[in-house]
């Protein structure tokens, strides 16, 4: 593939990611719709979401107008091939087509970078052992504003430095997202690490398919416990009550310093736009 073809493939990846939800997420939403009580707010919201997903896919238009922060995870075999410059070119082209909103604002003077390209935007990571795979994740501002980091112990939550404390912190993040992060959501969580890697690792968990479980059985058990507990909170789709509140919980752990115990929660809305291609 020459650089023209790579840029075109990346542009196509952006358009498809913005307009088409991954199958596992759509299936989970369809199951939730089937289980919702007739004439409930949950049923109305979920049906609108499903109709929206189908319409956006058919038209090839953004399924959510907040086309979000673009995070590219590029396998290290593509280093020097899929360059940040090519990625930017594809982002600018996709923006010009209306597949992405002009969504990139200068934080000092408030002006718009109409190409969606600026220092640090889009975000590009090269992944060790990632082969020739390019994965794109779009995460909107409404959900990003609901991501949080806790430092244990947290007296207000009664959360100590153990898995019970971790659980309390994560469920607090779910409660605080009520109405704001577009539920039903998906959580990516990092237990431990430093503040910066906490957010990085938590966000990476959002790349996992809904059906998988953490390899560590202790984390896998906590994933299903939190999913079940969160769905018993009754927050429901768009916070209007009922179920589900979450579609998935994805945990990872990193070693920490003796002095630090961070629990970092990346909240993703139902519009979990992730997609991969092999180049």
């Amino acid at each position: 593939m020459d650089s023209r073809e790579i840029a075109a493939a990346l542009e196509e990846l952006i358009v498809r990611t913005s307009s088409s939800l991954p199958e596992d997420v759509e299936e989970a939403l369809a199951r939730a719709r089937a289980n919702a009580a007739a004439d409930s707010s949950a049923a109305l919201v979920l049906q609108t979401i499903l109709d929206n997903i189908a319409l956006a896919r058919r038209l090839g238009t953004p399924l959510c107008q907040d086309t979000g922060t673009l995070a590219f995870y590029i396998g290290d075999a593509l280093r020097g091939v899929v360059t940040p410059a090519l990625v930017r070119e594809a982002v600018a082209a996709a923006t010009a087509r209306g597949a992405l909103r002009k969504n990139c604002i200068d934080s000092i003077d408030g002006t718009s970078y109409d190409s969606n390209c600026a220092a640090g935007a889009p975000v590009v990571h090269y992944v060790e052992g990632g082969g020739r795979r390019v994965t794109l994740l779009l995460k909107g501002g409404g959900s990003e504003n609901m991501s949080r980091q806790y430092s244990l112990p947290d007296a207000a939550l009664g959360a100590g430095r153990d898995l019970a404390g971790v659980r309390a912190a994560i469920l607090d993040a779910v409660s605080r997202a009520k109405g704001y992060g577009c539920a039903p959501g998906i959580l990516g969580v990092c237990i431990g690490g430093d503040r910066a890697t906490g957010f990085e690792v938590a966000k990476e968990q959002l790349l996992r398919p809904l059906g998988d479980a953490a390899q560590d059985p202790r984390l896998a058990a906590l994933e299903s416990d939190i999913l079940e507990s969160a769905n018993a909170l009754g927050i429901g789709p768009m916070g209007l009550g009922g179920a589900p509140t979450l579609l998935g919980v994805k945990l990872a752990a990193r070693a920490r310093l003796p002095a630090s115990y961070f629990v970092t929660v990346a909240y993703m809305c139902w519009a979990c736009r992730r997609r991969s291609i092999e180049l």
Binding site: L55, P62, L63, C64, D66, C182, M238, C269, A271
Partner: peptide, 11 residues
């Protein structure tokens, strides 16, 4: 309350 994220339907 409109349905968050349902951008294509509202468009």
């Amino acid at each position: 309350q409109a349905v968050g994220g349902a951008a294509a339907i509202y468009a």
